[in-house]
Simulated assay, not measured.
Amino acid sequence: MKLVNDIYNLYRDKLTGDEEDVTAIVMSLLHGQSKEELVQWIQEMQETEIYQMFGLYLMEALRVKMAEDGIGGARPETARQQRYH
C-alpha cells in the first residue's frame, strides 16, 4: 500500500474525483517504465497486495476475453478501451 499512498499523496491536490484522473495517473506512471522497474515495485509490495493486484488483473483480463468472444453483456470495443497496456 506504500506505493499507492505515495502516488496518492503526490497527486492529491490535482485530483478531481473523476475516473479519468486515475487512468491518466496510471498511464503516466507506467509509460516508460521497464519490466525491471515494475518488478522492483512488486518486490516492495506486501504479499496481500500482490494477490490483490494479480486477482484484479485476472478478473479484468477474463472480462475482456469474454467480451471479445461475445459472452455476456459487455461489448468488445468497451473492453478494449479499458486496457492499460
Rank of each mutant, 00 (worst) to 15 (best):
G17S: 03
E47H: 08
R83F: 02
Y51F: 14
G55Y: 01
L62C: 10
L3Q: 05
T23D: 09
D18Q: 08
R63G: 01
N5I: 03
Y51N: 07
Y84M: 13
E36L: 06
V26Y: 10
L58C: 12
G17I: 02
Y11C: 03
P76S: 07
I42R: 15
Y11V: 04
Y11F: 13
E44R: 08
E77C: 04
H85W: 14
V64F: 03
H31I: 05
V26T: 15
N9D: 11
V22G: 08
A24K: 15
V22Y: 12
M1G: 07
Y57I: 12
E37L: 03
L15S: 04
S34P: 02
V64H: 04
A74S: 10
D69S: 15
K14I: 05
M53H: 02
Y84N: 08
A79K: 00
M66R: 05
I7P: 00
T78F: 09
K35H: 12
S28G: 13
Y8G: 03
S28M: 13
F54G: 02
E60A: 10
E36I: 08
L38A: 11
E36A: 12
R83V: 04
T16M: 03
I50Y: 02
K35L: 13
K35V: 10
Y84E: 07
M27T: 09
Q33K: 14
E37V: 05
Q43K: 15
Q82C: 05
E20N: 12
D21W: 02
E19R: 05
A67M: 01
G32A: 05
L3C: 03
R83Y: 02
D18V: 03
T48C: 06
E20M: 09
G73M: 07
Q46W: 09
I42L: 14
Q46D: 12
K35I: 13
Y8E: 03
D21M: 05
Q82K: 12
D13A: 09
W41Y: 14
Y51K: 11
V4P: 00
D69Q: 15
L10I: 07
R80A: 08
I25F: 01
M45S: 03
H85Q: 11
M59N: 09
A24R: 15
M59C: 08
M27N: 15
L15G: 04
E47Q: 09
I7Q: 02
R83L: 11
Q52Y: 05
G70W: 02
D18F: 03
L30M: 14
E68W: 00
Q43C: 11
S28N: 11
I25S: 00
F54P: 00
M59A: 15
F54Y: 12
Q46M: 12
A74Q: 05
I71F: 11
V64K: 04
E49P: 00
E20D: 12
K65W: 11
L10G: 06
L30V: 07
D69V: 06
H85G: 10
W41H: 13
L10A: 09
V64L: 07
L38M: 14
A67T: 00
Q52D: 07
E49G: 04
I50R: 06
A74F: 04
Q33H: 04
Y8V: 05
G73W: 00
Q33G: 01
E68D: 11
